[in-house]
C-alpha cells in the first residue's frame, strides 16, 4: 500500500494518459504561441530557425531567444507550480476555494520579500528567494489555522482576503516609500513575469520541481488521510509527517512562484478544477499530473494575451488572471452555496 507509484494502476491509466497527453499538446501549442506573439509577431518558421540554430546577430531571433523563451518557460513553471500548490491546499484544508492567492500565502511571501528589502536593503536573488519561501511557509501554516477543523466552509476565502489585504497594504507602503523599489517592484507587486529572467528561472525551477515531486509522492497518503483520521492510522500512515510534507510542497511551489513572478492568483483555483473536470474519477496524484499542464497552459495563454492585447504596453499576468479568475471564483461560490442546502 505504501508503494507511492501505485496511483499509476488506478483510475484508468490509459484514459488518464490520453488526457495528460492532450493537455501537454495544448501546452506545447500555447508555448509556441507565446514565442510567436508579442509586441511584434513573428512567423513560426523564424522561431523554429532560432531554436535550431540561433544567430545572435539577428534582432528578431535575439528577442525570441533572449526574452520570450525564458519568459515562456517561467510562465510554464509558475502555472504548473501554482496549480499544484492550489490542488494540495484544497486537499489538505478540504476546501475547493483554497488557492495560494486567495488564502494569502502569496501575499505573505511577497510581504517577506519586501520586508527584507526594507530592513536589509537591495538583496541578491538568492536571498529574495529564501525570504519568499519563508514567508510562504509561515502564511501556509496560518491558513491551516484559519481553516480550522477543515470543513467545507466559506470562511477560508474571507479570512484569507483579510490577511492578504493587510500584507499587501504593507507591501505597497514599502514599495511606495522606496524610490528604487518602486521601479522594480511596481509590476511584480501585482504579479508579472516582466522580471523573470534566465538566472531566476535556473535557480527557482529546481525548487518548484522538488515541490511538485513531493506533492506527487504524498498525494495518495493525503487522500487516505482525508478520508478520516482512523482510516489513515489503520493503514499505517503517519498524519503529522504527511501533512508536513504536504505543506512543504505548498511552500516550495508557492514561494518559488512569488520569487519569480510576484503574487499571482487564481491559477491555483482554476487549474485544479479544470483538471478534476477533465478526469473526475482519477485520484489526487493523477490530478496533480493533469493540473501541471493545465496550469502551465493557463499561465502561458494569460501572459501572451497580456502582452498582445495592449501592445506596446503589457498587462501584468496577475491582472489578466484576476479578470478571468474572479468570475470563476464567483461561479464556484454560487455553486457551493446552492449545494449546501
Amino acid at each position: 500500500m505504501d508503494n507511492s507509484f501505485s496511483f499509476l494502476h488506478f483510475g484508468g491509466l490509459r484514459l488518464g494518459g490520453l488526457r495528460l497527453g492532450g493537455l501537454w499538446l495544448v501546452t506545447l501549442l500555447a508555448f509556441g504561441g507565446a514565442l510567436c506573439l508579442g509586441a511584434q509577431d513573428y512567423p513560426p518558421a523564424l522561431i523554429w530557425q532560432a531554436l535550431r540554430d540561433f544567430d545572435p546577430g539577428n534582432a528578431a531571433q535575439a528577442i525570441v531567444m533572449g526574452m520570450r523563451l525564458p519568459r515562456a518557460l517561467a510562465a510554464m513553471l509558475v502555472g504548473a507550480s501554482l496549480a499544484v500548490s492550489g490542488l494540495v491546499m484544497q486537499a489538505i484544508v478540504r476546501n475547493p476555494l483554497a488557492d495560494p492567492g486567495l488564502t494569502g500565502v502569496n501575499a505573505g511571501a511577497a510581504l517577506a520579500v519586501v520586508a527584507g528589502l526594507w530592513v536589509l536593503g537591495p538583496l541578491p536573488q538568492m536571498a529574495t528567494a529564501g525570504l519568499a519561501l519563508l514567508g510562504a511557509g509561515a502564511a501556509a501554516m496560518l491558513v491551516r489555522l484559519l481553516a480550522g477543523g477543515g470543513d467545507n466552509s466559506l470562511r477560508l476565502p474571507l479570512a484569507g482576503a483579510a490577511f492578504a489585504s493587510l500584507c499587501m497594504a504593507i507591501v505597497s507602503l514599502v514599495v511606495l516609500l522606496n524610490p528604487e523599489a518602486r521601479n522594480i517592484y511596481r509590476f511584480w507587486m501585482v504579479g508579472s513575469l516582466a522580471l523573470a529572467d534566465r538566472n531566476g528561472l535556473l535557480m527557482l525551477a529546481p525548487v518548484a520541481l522538488v515541490g511538485i515531486g513531493i506533492a506527487l509522492l504524498v498525494a495518495r497518503q493525503i487522500e487516505t488521510l482525508m478520508l478520516g483520521g482512523e482510516m489513515g492510522a489503520a493503514l499505517g500512515i503517519h498524519p503529522g509527517r504527511v501533512l508536513s510534507l504536504g505543506f512543504l510542497a505548498i511552500t516550495l511551489t508557492a514561494g518559488a512562484t512569488v520569487a519569480l513572478a510576484g503574487p499571482v492568483g487564481f491559477i491555483g483555483l482554476i487549474a485544479p478544477h479544470l483538471a478534476r473536470r477533465i478526469a473526475p474519477q482519477s485520484g489526487l496524484a493523477m490530478t496533480v499530473l493533469l493540473a501541471c499542464p493545465m496550469g502551465a497552459s493557463l499561465a502561458l495563454l494569460a501572459d501572451t494575451a497580456g502582452r498582445r492585447l495592449v501592445r506596446p504596453a503589457e498587462l501584468p499576468l496577475g491582472i489578466v488572471l484576476a479578470m478571468i479568475g474572479a468570475p470563476a471564483f464567483m461561479l464556484l461560490v454560487r455553486r457551493m452555496l446552492r449545494g449546501t442546502e
Binding site: P157, L158, A161, V190, V310, I319, A326, V333, L337
Partner: peptide, 27 residues
C-alpha cells in the same frame, strides 16, 4: 438575499473591478 453570499460574491467582484481598473490605467 443571502448576506453570506453577498460578502463572498462581493469579494470576487472587488478583485474583478480592481483588476479591470488596473487594466484601464495601463491603457
Amino acid at each position: 438575499i443571502e448576506p453570506r453570499a453577498v460578502v463572498l460574491q462581493g469579494l470576487g467582484l472587488a478583485i474583478l473591478a480592481g483588476a479591470a481598473t488596473e487594466a484601464l490605467i495601463l491603457r
